[in-house]
Structure formats: C-alpha cells, structure tokens
C-alpha cells in the first residue's frame, strides 16, 4: 500500500467516526434540561410567547426530524443560528477562532522551546540529578491545575508586579500589545503541554539512543556531540512533534479554562457561556467543531508520520 492509498483509507475510516460524533453531539444537547425559549425570552415571558418561539425553532418537532434537518444543514456548512442573537453559529465560531488559534499556537511554541532542550538533556543524562529535577519540574506541569496556575500568574505578574496585563485580547491596540496580553495565558496553558512534550521527547530520545545506527555512527568515529546532533536529536524530534499533535485535545480542553480565567474571546470561553445560556446551536456547533479539529489533527498527524517515515507500514 502506498502513501496515497493509505490517505484514502484513512479518510474513509473517519467517515463513520464523523457520523458517530454528530449523533453523540445531537443527542447530548437534546437531553440537556432547560427550555431555550425561556432562556431567551427571560423570566417575564408569557406562555404564549414561549410557545411561539418553540414553534419557530422547531423545538416541538420530533427529535429525529430535528436531527435530520440539523445533519443536512451541517453538511452544507450551516451550523444554525444563535438562539439569543440570531447570528450564524459558523460566524460566531469564526470570530472566536483567532484568539484560540493564537493562544494555542503560542502555547505550543513556548512548550516546545522548553520541552525539547530539557527532554534531550534529560535523556542524555539519564538518572542524573538534572534528569530528576527536569522530570519533577515536568511532572509539576501536569500536576498543577492550569486554571490555578493562571490565577497565581495574574496575582503575581499583573497585580503585584504590574509587568503584564492580566490576559485579554488586545490586538486592536497593535501587534505587541496583543502579544503582551498573550504571554501569561500562553505560559499557563503551555505548562502542562510542555510537561507532556518533555516526557515524550525524553522517551523518544532514549528510544533513538538505543538504536543500532547510533552505535554505527559512534563506531564510524563521529564525536559524541555530532552523533547527538546529527542523528539522535533529528530522529527523536519527528515522532515527538507528530505525536504531540495527538495531544491537541488536551490543549483544547485547557483552552476552555485558560480563556475563562484570562478573559480571552476564544471558542473555549464561548462554550462555557453558551452552555450557561442554553444556546443549543452554539453548544452543538462548538462541540462538533472541537471534535472535528481533534479528528482532523489526528489524521494529519498520522499522515505526516507516515510521510516522514517511509519505512512505516501503512496499516
């Protein structure tokens, strides 16, 4: 099987997954208690008003019919409209995407910058005190709830020291103002990611160092730094980078909390606010969006892994 056949097979495999996802998302949301009509109209609404609105939004139709309409619409890229503001959900997601994309992007970059060197050193000096310290620090990263870390950052760096703004999305005031607001949230979000990445880099590095070709390189008389740089690191980074792509779900979950704490207008915070307002179409759209990003990322990761490793068996 060549790469292209593998690609087609991988894509075909994801079709039932997507159908399953949409079924889960749809049934999940329709089991949520609470009447969206009341949420929109408010406590003061009369029964007639509530019923009229339910009628208008097909909330009185049988579920399977609602599902059919919904599925047909998403296939056409129509995720429905917000119950509150009547804005198209796709538009809402698009408007919230930049904040999340930038935040996650910086978080990934920050975590790689921390993780790769530490992972390499940790693996080279296995079981030394450096390794132990590095592993403990990395472990701290996954052990501290990131929202708690975020709050601590705000108190120290924004309130007491006044060095950085307490998050927020300031790109309208210029690129650097925007980036400044991204620092604390990106570090808070990236900490856990850095920890995971460090562990992966370390084990990937250990794996590579055990391989025969490293011995061969050494035998060929290359100096140790050259062996490390030319062979070991290069070969260890690829699986690390591709495999951390699989952790994108971790990042997205973290973004929900980080965006809430740092007041970022991203998709994560939107999910929480939509949930509190029972805005069904937005909740559906967002969970579907998260799952899609997740699945698409894993496909890309799988493919790029296959692409970079011609030796891999496409199965």
């Amino acid at each position: 099987m060549n790469f292209w056949q593998y690609l087609v097979k991988r894509l075909l495999h994801s079709v039932p997954v997507f159908i399953g996802i949409s079924l889960v998302v749809f049934s999940l949301i329709h089991l949520i208690p609470g009447d969206p009509a009341i949420a929109v109209l408010g406590e003061q609404a009369t029964d007639e008003e509530v019923n009229a609105l339910r009628e208008e939004w097909h909330l009185n139709d049988p579920l399977w019919q609602q599902f059919g309409i919904w599925l047909l619409n998403i296939v056409q890229g129509d995720l429905g409209r917000s119950l509150h503001t009547n804005q198209p959900v796709s538009e809402i997601i698009a408007s919230r995407l930049p904040a999340t994309a930038i935040l996650s992007g910086i978080a990934i970059v920050v975590s790689l910058m921390i993780a790769i060197p530490i992972g390499i050193i940790s693996a080279l000096k296995r079981n030394s005190w450096i390794d132990h310290v590095a592993r403990v620090v990395a472990m701290l990263g996954v052990s501290i709830p990131n929202f708690w870390l975020g709050i601590v950052f705000i108190i120290i760096f924004a309130v007491h020291l006044g060095w950085l703004p307490p998050g927020g999305y300031h790109f309208s005031k210029g690129f650097w103002a925007g980036m400044e607001g991204m620092i604390l949230p990106a570090v808070a979000l990236g900490a856990a990611y850095a920890a995971i990445t460090t562990r992966m880099m370390r084990s990937s590095m250990l794996e590579v160092l055990r391989q025969e070709y490293i011995e061969t390189a050494r035998a060929k008389g290359l100096t140790e730094p050259r062996v490390i740089r030319l062979h070991a690191v290069k070969n260890a980074i690829i699986p690390t980078i591709t495999v951390i792509g699989m952790q994108i779900g971790y990042l997205l979950s973290g973004a929900v909390l980080t965006e809430t704490i740092f007041f970022m207008p991203g998709v994560g915070r939107e999910l929480i606010t939509a949930l509190s307002k029972r805005d069904f179409p937005i909740i559906q759209g967002l969970i579907l969006f998260f799952a899609t990003v997740f699945v698409v990322t894993s496909i890309i990761v799988d493919l790029s892994y296959a692409f970079f490793n011609p030796k891999i068996e496409y199965s």
């Binding site: 399953g20 996802i21 889960v24 979950s253 929900v256 969970i287 998260f290 799952a291 997740f294």
Partner: peptide, 17 residues
C-alpha cells in the same frame, strides 16, 4: 467516536445533561 472528543469537553457536555 468517544475518543474523538477532547475528554474535558465531552465531560462538560454530559455533565450539563
């Protein structure tokens, strides 16, 4: 299908129900 959701987000969704 279940693994296709970020775990916390799926948990939030189910808990809301």
């Amino acid at each position: 299908v279940f693994l296709a959701f970020p775990a916390l987000i799926l948990a939030i969704g189910i808990l809301a129900v």
